[in-house]
Design a protein around this nucleic acid. Structure first.
Length: 425
RNA sequence: GUGGGUGUAGCUCAACUUGGUGGAGCAUGGGACUGUGGCUCCCAGGGUUGCGGGUUCGAGUCCCGUCACCCACCCCA
């Protein structure tokens, strides 16, 4: 038995990083007024064929799709923007036309797996609807940048504008014309017809295309004005960015501003990307609404995240011997069930405060195998990073005290059972 | 989807030029210390060598197929 190609069980260190990224995102984007949404993992196929363009690779070969029992075509979502737009049209466009939302979840694309590329992968995305200004563009890039900083990921942003409905068709025509004068690789010959912009992305032909016409020379007044404004604001926000004239996007719905973030040491695969898509809402059946968003790949992100090597010690572990287990479990339950001891000021004696904190705010666990020796229980408590061990043996029960070992300081002391019981009641 | 590389214990890797009874470190469990962690020492458990076929007296090793992972292309977050 093995898991499906390109999927993985996430656990241990990788899971810690996942959770860290997700929690940081939730806190940060919420604090900026974004609302979280969770859309279904399965959608009707048309949600994506309509939005991504039916010639895109994702739609043509990469979607997991199947016929549902009622005959409808259903897919596992390959990306998050189209469902977000569907959600916006259905739930927000009238009640809250200017909306900021974010999502976190798995996406599916049937590609050949590789580093940073999996068939089930996870994205965090932010989308803003109803804002059409350069201010909103640069704001979005700024929060992407500051989020990466929060994670400790050193990044560089590439920005460009692929023009609007007015100027892009003019440019595409010129670009296609230009490519006929070049000897291009077979892939590019194919792309030239379908999606000439992507020829600029080609790695093989990159040098040949150095003198290709640049979109920036074809921008209309509005596009130029807007792009300059974005660059100015980005400088004001001190975002590290570069105008990359050859930057384009793979998905059809983008218009105007586009951007990608890379880790500073790895310019090969983008960790975050996005752009403006002013006509998608309308195209999917909503009111004309300007929109802009980005998504990042969690798997790609966590390659660059360093978690603190070892968490500080914390918590209480109860160790006992075979003949004291009843008492030990009674103690465990009493401790587990007594909350807010400190707020109730039940803990009078100063010397107990730290211990009580450890098991009310931190971990409290008890040995589950009565046949184990104390040594083995100590080893477990140590390797799992507990701070205190409560030792319950015959000596303690008959002497009416608890031995407490501080694993950090390697000290051991006794506390009176009578004292301890008074505030557990 | 195309091309290349790699699959040996839970993990990282040995097993040589030329086929001859698969080992170590780490991790886990136990002991030395019969009620005390980390350090040290000792012992133990764990493997159809990814899977299937072929060549051979004999295959972890050579050949073919297949699957998985990694790398590049492609695509994209």
């Amino acid at each position: 038995m093995q898991n499906i190609t390109g999927t993985s069980d996430i656990f241990g260190e990788a899971l810690e990083k996942f959770v860290f990224v997700e929690n940081t995102a939730r806190d940060y984007f919420s604090s900026l007024g974004f609302e979280e949404i969770r859309t279904p993992i399965i959608e009707y196929q048309e949600v994506f064929t309509k939005s991504l363009g039916d010639v895109s690779d994702i739609v043509m070969h990469q979607m997991y799709s199947f016929e549902d029992k009622d005959g409808s075509q259903v897919v596992l979502r390959p990306e998050g923007t189209a469902p977000a737009v569907r959600f916006y049209i259905k739930n927000l466009q009238y009640s809250k036309p200017r909306s900021k939302i974010f999502y976190i979840g798995p996406m599916f694309r049937r590609e050949k797996p590789q580093k940073g590329r999996y068939r089930q992968f996870h994205q965090i995305g932010c989308e803003i609807f109803g804002f059409g200004s350069g201010e909103s563009d640069s704001y979005l890039i700024y929060i992407a940048d500051s989020f990466l900083k929060k994670l400790g990921v050193e990044s560089i942003a590439l920005v460009n504008s692929i023009g609007c409905r007015v100027c892009r068709p003019r440019y595409i025509e010129q670009l296609r014309e230009y490519t006929y004068s070049k000897d291009l690789c077979p892939d590019c010959v194919r792309r030239r017809e379908k999606n000439p912009l992507r020829v600029l992305d080609c790695k093989i032909d990159a040098e040949k295309l150095n003198d290709a016409p640049a979109i920036s020379d074809y921008w209309c007044e509005d596009c130029k004005y807007n792009f300059d404004k974005v660059c100015k604001y980005l400088s004001d926000f001190s975002v590290k960015f570069r105008h990359e004239t050859k930057l384009v996007r793979g998905l059809d719905y983008y218009t105007g501003l586009v951007f990608e973030f890379y880790h500073k040491d790895d310019m090969k695969s983008a960790i975050l990307a996005g752009g403006r898509y002013d006509f998608l809402v309308e195209f999917m059946g909503g009111k004309p609404t300007p929109a802009c968003g980005f998504a990042m790949g969690i798997e790609r992100l966590i390659n660059f995240i360093q978690m603190p090597s070892r968490a500080p010690r914390g918590g209480v572990f109860i160790a006992y011997t075979e003949d004291t287990r009843e008492f030990a479990f009674w103690l465990f339950r009493s401790m587990k069930e007594s909350k807010d001891l400190l707020r109730q000021k039940k803990v009078i004696d100063e010397k107990y405060v730290r211990i009580v904190e450890e098991f009310t705010k931190g971990r409290l666990e008890i040995n589950l195998d009565p046949s184990r020796g104390l040594k083995s229980q100590f080893r477990q408590a140590d390797s799992e990073g507990y701070k205190f061990i409560f030792i319950i043996g015959m000596e303690e029960v008959s002497g009416k005290f608890i031995s407490v070992r501080d694993l950090e300081k390697s000290e051991q002391f006794q506390i009176s059972l009578q004292d301890f019981r008074t505030f557990l009641q």
